[in-house]
Every structure is written in structure tokens, then in C-alpha cells.
Design a protein around this nucleic acid. Structure first.
Lengths: 192, 192
DNA sequence: AAAAACTCTTGATAAATGTCAAAAAGAATT
DNA sequence: AATTCTTTTTGACATTTATCAAGAGTTTTT
């Protein structure tokens, strides 16, 4: 499993063999079966997770019991609850495997160690976070600008490889609409 | 004006007098009158801006000409279009002074210089971006979870000091509702 | 101070999306 | 292959929010 992560890193930054050994030594492989949780509400998140294979989502549950998907993560993506990780507060989110998955866990302290010892790693992470922030702002903007149908089409265009893998009701909850509305939109769109 | 920024920095990190002199030497003070733009759509954003005083907002304009406020910035906040800044692409956003304001501009290259020469500065910035990302995720989650009224109340609670300063139609566009709906909500809420 | 230009509120109506219930389709399990 | 469980679709109806138009308040400009 670590090989995946290594290839990911090789693609982004240049590291010594020692660096890779250090990273490998602190990485924990975790396999998850479909429906299994990596994090549940109330937990304090203690890791960053790199997705080697599979498909996960992060979601919250509101007072009425409705799920709201805030994030998907598939191969080569990261996932965690950064808020909880940063502040040590209990998480409001669930992170659940949508498919059988394998992730690499790096604990908070080890992650800080890596950032300290390996500047290129630190810079890579900071750039990722920047990009993530940009993408999240973009998502907010789209959410407000678009109708349900436009949001659906925008998702298809942005994540063509996720479209078929994503259960509809999870996609609906990611778009902020009900499964029924999504179903009707899909019918309309296919008729065009 | 630089004094404001200095106090802000003193509050967060420990720097030498030399560091402050360096920072001061590359900071550009810019005063903005109400309605004046710091950035307009199509511009490439070339700076990070620290708000010394005043009140600004960042918004996009959709096909129908409707404005969508994505961000407010007041004293001690930062503003920029990071996407455009990072990639050198034309911005989709306007940044406009809502009140007479004074900002400190730091160009992209000087900002990188500071991050390189002054590690505490770099760390501070990275932490800010992390927090901003957390807040933005939180905002997305709230947007989906909440009704218009809840979003309004949440804004009041989160930014009590902005509530009275913010023109209603801009607040409405930040919440993703129309000014008319906001007006009706305010009437309801005040009746309680 | 009057006029003009915004901003906010109110009312009537329309459109989009949500809710609830049930049927249909698809997967997983026996 | 049959059964059970889950997911998706469909229909009828309700609710929320948007739209359009007009009027009341505020600010800004002349």
C-alpha cells in the first residue's frame, strides 16, 4: 500500500531514500470495508488519511437525521477532520467508506514531525491546503449561483470519474438537494 | 497604518526589529473610498491585502447580473483572490470597499520572500489558511443544513460586530437569499 | 432644502424544491 | 432462484423562497 503513497509523493516532490523510509515508518495502513467508519461524530480526529484505494465520504447528520455530505475522497486524496485535528475538539462529522478502501494514516504528531524534518513535504501540504481552500470557495460560489440542475451538471463536469461510482442519495446530499429532486433532474437531463 | 499590522503580528508571533523593518519596507498602504474596487473581474490578483481599517467584500456577478458575496473582510482580516494569485488566472471576483478603508498590500513575490525569510510568518500564514479552510467547510455545512432564518441567526451569532455594519442586500447575497426574503425574516425574528 | 439615487420593506403571484407514500428496480444474502 | 434489504424513481401535494412591482425610508448630491 505504501507504494501508492510513494508514487504520489514522487510525482509532486523530490525526496531522499531516507525521507521515504521515515515516512514509511510512521504510516499506518488501514483497510476499511464498505460502510465502515474511519471517524464518527464525537471522536477527536487524530490523523490525516491518504486514500490509497477506494472511496470515502465525510458527512454530518442534522437534527432531523438528514445526512449532508461535505466531501468525497478517492484514490490520491486526503481526508480528515482538520478542525477537530487542529483544535482537539470532538468532530461533527462521520467519515465512512463507500467502497472497500485502503488508507494510510499519519498521526497528528507524526505529521508535524514530517512537516518539520522534510520542508518539501511541508510545502506540498501547504499548497494542497491552499488549493483545497480555493476549491471550497469555488464550491460555495457555485452553490449560490446555480440551480439544482446546474449544480448536478457542474459535478459531472468536475468529477467525471466519480459520477458513476457515487450513490445517488449521497450525491444529492453533496449537492444540497433531496434524492427525489436529483432523480427528477436526471430524468430531465437525459431527455435532452 | 503600518502600526496596525505590526500590532497584529506582535499578537501572533515573535519577530525581530529587522523582520519588522523588512515587512514594513515591502508593504504598500492603499486607501480606498467607499465603493472603490481593490480588484475587479478579469484582473489578475497580484497581492495579499491586510485590512487595517474599514470594511470590504468579495463578490461575483452571475449571468443575470445578480451579485453573490462570498466573503467579508474587516479590520485585521486578509483578503485577496488566492486562486488568481496562485495561478495567475483572471479573477472571477470583485473586491470592493463597503466603507472607506485602508489596506496594506503585499505583492505575491514579496509575500513569498517573507515566507521564506521569516519562518514564523510562514507558519502563521499557513495556520490562517488552515483556519480559513475549516471555517469555509463549516460554512458549506451550515448552508446545507440550515433554513434561511437559521442562516441569518447563525451569521448574527458568528459576526455580531458585522451585523449592523453590513448593508442588508449584501448580507442577503452572502446568505444566498434575496433581499426580500431577508427582510421578511427580519420582520419575523423581531416579532419573537 | 429639494432632488435624485439608493436601500429596504411589503404585497401578490410564480417557480423551484421539499415531503410523504408507494411502486419499481437493483444488490446482497440465503 | 428466491427472499430480503437497499436504492431509485414516480406521483400528489405542501412549503419555501424567488420574482416582479410598488411604495416607504435613507443617504447623497446638487
Amino acid at each position: 500500500m505504501f507504494e501508492r503513497f510513494r508514487r504520489y509523493l514522487e510525482d509532486k516532490i523530490i525526496l531522499s531514500e531516507n525521507d521515504y523510509q521515515l515516512i514509511k515508518s510512521i504510516s499506518i495502513v488501514k483497510k476499511l470495508r464498505k460502510h465502515q467508519f474511519l471517524l464518527t461524530e464525537g471522536d477527536v480526529c487524530t490523523f490525516n488519511a491518504f486514500v490509497c484505494e477506494g472511496f470515502l465520504r465525510k458527512y454530518s447528520v442534522d437534527d432531523k437525521g438528514t445526512e449532508h455530505t461535505v466531501y468525497f475522497a478517492t484514490e490520491n486524496w486526503w481526508t480528515a477532520d482538520r478542525q477537530s485535528l487542529m483544535d482537539g475538539t470532538p468532530s461533527k462529522y462521520y467519515i465512512e467508506a463507500i467502497e472497500d478502501s485502503a488508507v494510510l494514516l499519519i498521526s497528528k504528531s507524526n505529521f508535524e514531525l514530517l512537516s518539520e524534518k522534510i520542508p518539501p513535504f511541508r510545502d506540498m501540504v501547504n499548497q494542497l491546503i491552499q488549493r483545497s481552500l480555493n476549491a471550497t470557495h469555488e464550491r460555495i460560489n457555485n452553490t449560490f449561483i446555480s440551480t439544482a440542475e446546474e449544480k448536478y451538471n457542474h459535478f459531472l463536469k468536475s468529477f467525471p470519474n466519480l459520477a458513476n461510482r457515487t450513490p445517488r442519495h449521497m450525491l444529492a446530499s453533496y449537492l444540497g438537494i433531496t434524492p427525489e429532486t436529483l432523480s427528477r433532474i436526471r430524468k430531465q437531463v437525459s431527455g435532452k
